[in-house]
Structure formats: C-alpha cells, structure tokens
Design a protein around this nucleic acid. Structure first.
Lengths: 152, 152, 152, 152
DNA sequence: TTTT
DNA sequence: TTTT
C-alpha cells in the first residue's frame, strides 16, 4: 500500500551496468549503511543493503558512481522469493531505487554535492523503455508549472 | 537535494478541484495529523498540514476523498515565499503530494483499504499535461518488467 | 548513515511474542505490501516484508495486532548475514520497527484509527530493559515542552 | 497519525543555540533544499525549510554545524498557528528534527561523512531534561542486544 | 538572514 | 474552514 525507503551510505564496489534481453538498462550495487549505535561489544555495525536501479537512472549511476562514494537512495523495499536449483526457497530483499543523489565531491561545482542526480519514475509506473529512449531527455519545453499558472 | 514527506491523517474538509489557466488540474486539502504524544496539559495536539496535488492525482483525490477520510500522503515539502499586498513577506508551506492512498473503507473490496490510489510523477519531472491527457491511462501494454527480463 | 523505512500493509499472520534469554520482549511478523503497479501479466504483486519490534512495542503489537490488520510501520532496514549449519552464507533482511500504527478499526473510538500506538526508541539508543521495565510508563510528569517554554 | 520527513540540504546560516526558561536547549536553523527539477524559466528553485532541534541534539548541532554545510535531517512536520499582535492568524511550519547527520567533511575521519551525529528521541516521548543532563551520555553499558540474545 |  |  505504501513502501518508501530512504538510505544514505557508501558504495561497497563499482556498480555494473547490464541490460535485460529486452534492452532495459539495470544497475545493481551494494550500500554500506552504518548503524547509529554500537552493539554490546562497543562496535558500530553496518547494514549492507542491495540496491537496484533501472533505465536512465541505471546508466547515470553506472557512469558516475564509484566504490566508496557517499550517496542517498530513495526507493521501495522489494522482496523476491523463488526456489533455487536445489529446491530451496530463497528470499532476496533489495531496494528498487527511484532517486539517487551523489553526496560527495563529484568534481563538478567546486566540491559541491549532488553534482549528478538521477530520478526514475517511482513505482515502476512508467512504460518500458529501451536504453536509447531517454525518459529524461530534454525536449526544450518547460517541465514545471509557473506561479502565474496557479488558480489560488 | 532530497526532500521526502510521508503523512497519515484525516481530511479536514472536502477537497476542491480547480484548474490552472492552462488547464492543469490541481486539488488542495488539509490533513489533520495527530501528534504521537501529549503536551504539558495532557492534551494530544494535531498538526494541520496543507497538501496540494496536481494533474491526474488531483482529479482522483477530488473524486474519491471526503472530509474525515483517513489517507496516507507521500510528497515533498515546499515553501513558497512572497510579498502580500501590504508589502509583508509571507511564507507558505505545503506538501506537494505525489502519492495518496485511501486507508479506510472505500466500499471497494469488502472493507479493504487503498480502494483507490493515486500516483503522480514525483519531483514534477513529468511534462505539463492538460486535464484530459491522463498520464496514467492504460494503453493496454504491460508496464513492468517480468522476471524473465532480469539479467541476473 | 541514514536508514528509514515507512510501510503500510497487512499482517500475514498473528504476531508471536518471545523473550530473549535476558528477558527482552521481541515480536516478529510479516507484512503484505501490495505494489502500486501491475506486472507484465497484469497481476498486482505483493512484497512480503519481515518486521521485528522490541521491548514495549513488541508487547503492544503482540497484544493488539491480528492477521489481516492494516498497519503502518516505521523503522530501519537491517541486513544480517551469517553462515548456516551447512556452511552456506545466508542474508536475512528485516525492518526493525520503531513505530507501529494501527490503521483499521480497533474497536476503540468508534471506527477510528490508530486506536493503539507503539513507539520504540529509534536507533536502538535506549538502554537495554527487561520486559517489566516499561520505557513508556507514565511517571505523571508532562513529557513535552509547552509554548510558554519557547525562547522565540 | 504518522508524520515523517527526510531532508538533505545546506544550512543558510550558522545555527544559534537558545535555552527555554526551564533550561531546555533548542537550536533553529534554515535548510536550503534544491528542487530536483527546473521551473518554466529553466531555473532550479530552492525550498528554504526551517528546522528546530531540542535538547542534546540542539547542542550538538550548535557546536558542529556552520552555514553552508550539507546535512541530512529526519523529523516530523509541525504546524503552529497563532494570532499575532495585530490579531492576524499566522501559521508557522517547521520540521522538528530528531536526527541530524553531517554529510560533508567534518575534519574527523579523513574526509568522511557523518563525523558527528545527533539523535533525539523522536516524538518527544522522552522526559524533559535539563541541558546538563545528556540523554546520550555513555554510561559504559552496552546499549544494544547481542546476537546471543536473540530468541530465533 | 538565504545554501552550493 | 479544522479530522477522529
């Protein structure tokens, strides 16, 4: 009914871009997210959380992200369940990201953050697109609504 | 850089649908969100939070929501600042909703919830559309990616 | 660094309350969270997400929740990794809930929602407590700050 | 019923620490949060969002944050309404932060992030404390539950 | 009072 | 204009 996740963490390896048989771009990576407290041994533990992003966002992430980079990820928590080839039931949890923000230096605007951004259409509601069909390509038209446009 | 709000509360009045001069649907409503604690007088206070939704979601909300209904709203917190006609600086805060879920009886699936749902394209990244141009109209094609499509 | 999850879904079974050897209450349950879109076969899929709650919240949830009930859960996504007795690496993902809200009729306030609420101390920053040591027990003192108290 | 906000943005000025008459620390600051899209004039707009934090977190923020720093804030959206001295109804919206993470260099761990963290007890459920009574002071005891402690 |  |  509602499923929203927000994470900030560091990439544990370089993301790798793949394509589905239908040509849809998909990138997976793992995020190290430190817990905000220490355990009984006084150690700070870390959750290693798998992220998957699709389409244009997959390509942006693959192009700009590297192991160690700090990112914010928004998305939904997905649990897939299947039987492996030993007949064992396996459950795989991952966050399907629809927004990824780069939080440390990207070499862009003088040490700034968010130099590159990615937005996907949350909830997978966008139609399936091939990799060459950029859903965010600028068509030269304005994409927001001006104040003059407001009815109140 | 990142701006996400999730609220659950009750409508304080019937929402009203308007259209911008350009024909874009927009609906505003106010949500009563009880605080999870009581104040020094032992009273439970409530935040009255303004929500605005656009396009198809505006029409869905206007059609199905009524005063008193319980809803979940996802969106971003927007602060507009302007000078009023007395030259005074006014700040208006509202949540621009991109997902609204109906949480109490909708007469749909036997006491179920979420009988009607609305999703807008978060972040306002969709192109401007007129009210008759439903961004979520079903075109008869599948809108998600099947398991067979997965490269891993 | 930051890890926040908000879910709304239905309990797939009655939760069961257990206690750790140290007497800490813990309740697990599974939430069915419908996806907001349909797959290529036109079916609406569901994520079955495991939730675990601790201490007072565990007891509240065990006392009031039943299979089928609609709830909102806030928490953090935790991934535990261990080797099973076959030497296989297993990863278990679950949401550690720190706030659970009951969203359908609880028999309390005439069809209201949120009849019962649970809050845990997010981030696990509270000290370990035994089950009889209610962290939310009312000590008769006010727990919030009045307006008179504000310095601005 | 549920009210959660997650923001990432930059401080627009140095925060200022105050105390209530009862000695409770409170710090306010304003966050500049860029929108993820451009308006009809092709400009990227920014929401300037007021944040208030209390108690220990107020002191941590006041000690470590400076104008321009990038932070993540979690909290709840609060709307206060009152009549000003001209008899006009004023509505003030602000995010009551219960978690603030520092996202750019803090001089701590070699360019790392989150060098300093603050957690407040969300929902204001903690008892009122004076400024010298650090709710997060380490008492030398473990604050989490070990794996051995788990009943499953 | 507006950040990068 | 305040919901339950």
């Amino acid at each position: 009914m509602l499923n929203r996740v927000v994470l900030i963490g560091r990439l544990t390896w370089d993301p790798e871009l793949r394509y589905t048989p239908n040509g849809v771009a998909v990138t997976s990576f793992r995020l190290a997210v430190d817990r905000p407290f220490t355990n009984q041994q006084g150690e700070r533990e870390t959750d290693f959380i798998d992220i998957v992003v699709w389409r244009q966002l997959a390509e942006t992430v693959a192009n700009y992200m590297k192991k160690g980079r700090l990112v914010a990820v928004e998305g939904r928590l997905q649990v897939r369940s299947f039987e492996n080839n030993e007949g064992r039931r396996i459950r795989v949890s991952e966050v399907v990201g629809d927004n990824v923000r780069f939080l440390d230096r990207g070499g862009d605007r003088s040490g700034g953050s968010g130099f590159n951004q990615g937005y996907d259409n949350p909830g997978g509601m966008s139609k399936d697109r091939g990799p060459s069909d950029d859903p965010f390509a600028d068509d030269g038209k304005p994409i927001d609504i001006s104040d003059d446009d407001l009815p109140f």
